[in-house]
Design a protein around this nucleic acid. Structure first.
Lengths: 131, 131
DNA sequence: CATGCAGTACGATAGAAGTCGTACTACATA
DNA sequence: TATGTAGTACGACTTCTATCGTACTGCATG
């Protein structure tokens, strides 16, 4: 049984220099529930968000705008909150922006392999190519 | 990239002796969608069903009654159908009974590691221990 | 043929979740 | 202070999902 990240795949793990803003309310590692995490990831838009964070993020967190999602702001708030409350992402307030990153260490510790599936995911065919 | 079961963990894989009843309608392997599978597994009752099939099933399929779930029959039909339509389980009609098993090979091929997470899942605390 | 059995189909209901407009807060800066 | 910006809060609406009662099908068997 793996203990923490020894066998985990190599997603970027963000450093936490201790002078960061406090994270917003989120479940602790031992409060993560598989059913909640899977529920949060069962939505294509949220899968897109997490996958993009895993594959394209730099060594810092990203604000909502970075994702380039074509949805009203209030919809995005809804989905980012769902991800954070399920424990998939962590959010911090940086002045105006609320930035997110994936809780890679925590998720690999509790659900090893899960993030690999998300990274390997491909979005559904965008739409029926018109008639 | 693994082709089929080479690196997959050792859940029981049911033999298919070719004189079995036809499976009920289900998505093909290449139609399996991560978001649908995760959605099907984001429910504690369905997680219970799949986990029990993974850990306790014999070399044959199991009818609904085998699970010992304390829910009305029509609720069980609903959940078994959800699992089958997401591609998590396969169901066959054996005379009176409709028996299920997990599509271990298919799921390991498409989403390696996912079933390990289900097998390692523990159900939520049953209920607030009385007042 | 009557009964029992395994399970489905249908339909009603209730709650959860997604979508989004509008109004709002908080900060930066000209 | 006025404007722009990033995002939240609230509320309305709609869609989806879970739950479950009732009625039904199909088979076995006395």
């Amino acid at each position: 049984m793996p203990t923490t990240t020894a066998d985990a795949p190599a997603f970027k793990v963000l450093p936490e220099p201790s002078d960061l803003p406090e994270p917003l309310a989120e479940p602790a590692v031992d409060e993560l529930r598989l059913e909640n995490v899977l529920g949060a990831l069962s939505d294509p838009l949220r899968l897109t968000i997490v996958r993009k964070l895993l594959l394209e993020s730099e060594d810092f967190d990203h604000s909502c705008g970075w994702f380039g999602l074509d949805r009203p702001k209030s919809s995005l708030t809804h989905h980012f909150k769902a991800l954070r409350e399920a424990g998939v992402t962590r959010q911090r307030q940086y002045g105006l922006e609320r930035r997110s990153h994936v809780r890679v260490d925590d998720l690999n510790a509790r659900f090893p392999g899960l993030l690999d599936l998300v990274a390997a995911w491909t979005p559904p065919a965008p739409r029926a190519p018109q008639a």
